[in-house]
Design a protein around this nucleic acid. Structure first.
Lengths: 186, 186, 186, 186
DNA sequence: GATGAATGAGACTTCATTCAT
DNA sequence: AATGAATGAAGTCTCATTCAT
């Protein structure tokens, strides 16, 4: 009863705001303004604040959404992927999405630190899925044995960062490739 | 006419501002405020603006100073270091410094994009020194042959990022180690 | 047409809103928000606005209700009280109720200034009842002869104010006592 | 050294803001807006906030100024007034000033509760001056012996309130007179 | 050359009120 | 008749930048 399903139009608005917020914060980091989100979403600021009572909570929602999407991917790969390449496929996919101002990185980073409940569920899911991926890949002898989940997140951030700052596509692929190579068993 | 040598006190002020700005932006990223820089430097805001007509230009100067320092290190290692480890030593050193709010990473990143002239000189110097380091290490057979300077910068950013988001020192060392391992010749 | 009798549920809602509004405005003064009234009453904001088209009108209704209650008390005392003490009893009772953020004081104050019709009836009733009380007490020789109803309301407000700002119960009783003593015939 | 004297123009601005704030808050109570203060003072909002970093601090400054003025009066009367009437003269004067939305009352009320240092000095001064006035008047046999300073403030508030809500000057004088009469020794 | 005051623009947030369901 | 979403206007506050002293 606490959260009766939103009315159709409200739900649409909420979704639109979230989507736009992802865009804005993606471009400008947390410096992006609520007002720009509202403007681009075609609603008043107050509407944004009705759905997300705080800028911080909007940010949390955006991050949670991204993390959920990534966890979905990880789940899929755990189930269906080739163990020998699954972790690498996963990392590459995520990196490919994280073009934007390190928001994702942030999301992947402070797992567990965040007070907004939205985050916690997502973070846990992701962590578990990644752990599964890692174990599988290690069992298949594809990934070196001396890394754990705790290292995977920084490495993901690292690869994303490398991608972010590369000057062209070819450079980016090589740079990311180097990071991933570091993970391989030899 | 623009570059008449500064009066002694003005020069001292300029240096002090720069030093403090590095501190402030180091702590708070570009969100750090001009006013705080002025306060900590013990001068008025207007003085900051006389030396750096724009917040952006102050940031550029801070970054240039850091880049120069890093280029100094690279130069030193080119001259005196062990070719087999020089590049790695360099990377580790830089990573160790870049704890703070990814300012350095930023500095190392948008080389060449920036309009402020201060940056250009520093960037060029650094690029050349790193190129030298890299060649030497590759000649010594320590670093894989298929990477170039263009990849080194993203990889530096990557390692710095990994360091930044690691939850503890041990994790950080392992994560950075993985990235560097990716660079080694096999 | 406007005053067709309300449907039973509507009437219940209206009453509930009024009751809750008294509570909220009592606690927070006119700064209390419509939305909080709605929430505590368990209805939507729009329902509040259907019954009271304006926040101002809701306030007026709350005040009118309080004034009616006070007029009831005055009527009772006119009928049943001891003339020698009736006015004092009345004043003390009212003061005892008006702890809250001077809303009552306000109610007792701007009688006649207010555009909302709700107020007028209540104000008139009260004024008449108080006039009766006063005359009776003066006839009994308990109250000085040189004050009229016009002075009683400010004095009521005065006593309420004194009560409001006193730092503890004993101080309050003494302060209010002084005001009432001013009213006694000597 | 912490507060070097303000530059002449800044001091003028500060004074003007304070003056206008007194006016605005006088008319509208603490609901008055900083923006209106700025507008009426002919400065930007930011200027108001430079001088008073918080709305609350502006309010505190206004109140402190009023309290100081009142304490001045009390001091004067302790020194030069006729003991038999000094306290009454004081009360009447203060009441005559406190036309406005009970700001003064508030000032006179929460003495000692306030965190802003500005307030504390003023409050103490006033309390002491009033205590002196009271003792003197009691010694002269003009004021009843069973009231203390703690009662005087509520009674002042009471008289001010009575004045505030009276419908015309004659009524006001009578109502205030009644309150003061309550204080007289018989 | 240096200072600190002033400012305009913008950020977050709240609220009375209106509208679609 | 009732609901809760949407909104515009306003409020408090911050900050890069300019100006008077």
């Amino acid at each position: 009863m606490s959260s009766r399903p939103l009315r159709a139009d409200a739900a649409r608005n909420r979704a639109r705001v979230l989507e736009v917020a992802d865009e804005v914060f993606g471009e400008q980091g947390r410096a992006g303004s609520t007002e720009e989100v509202a403007r681009r979403a075609g609603v008043g600021v107050a509407t944004v604040f009705r759905h997300f009572p705080t800028k911080e909570s909007l940010l949390a929602a955006v991050l949670a959404a991204r993390v959920h999407a990534i966890a979905d991917l990880a789940d899929r790969l755990v189930r269906d992927g080739d163990p020998a390449t699954a972790l690498f496929d996963f990392l590459r996919h995520v990196v490919a999405q994280s073009h934007t101002k390190s928001l994702l990185t942030e999301a992947l980073t402070d797992a567990g630190v965040d007070p907004y409940e939205a985050r916690r569920g997502a973070d846990t899911r992701l962590r578990e899925a990644v752990a599964a991926l890692l174990e599988r890949s290690q069992a298949a002898g594809a990934v070196r044995a001396d890394v754990g989940v705790d290292e995977v997140f920084p490495l993901l951030a690292a690869a994303a960062r490398a991608a972010e700052v590369s000057r062209d596509d070819a450079t980016r692929d090589r740079a990311v490739g180097v990071v991933l190579d570091g993970l391989r068993a030899r």
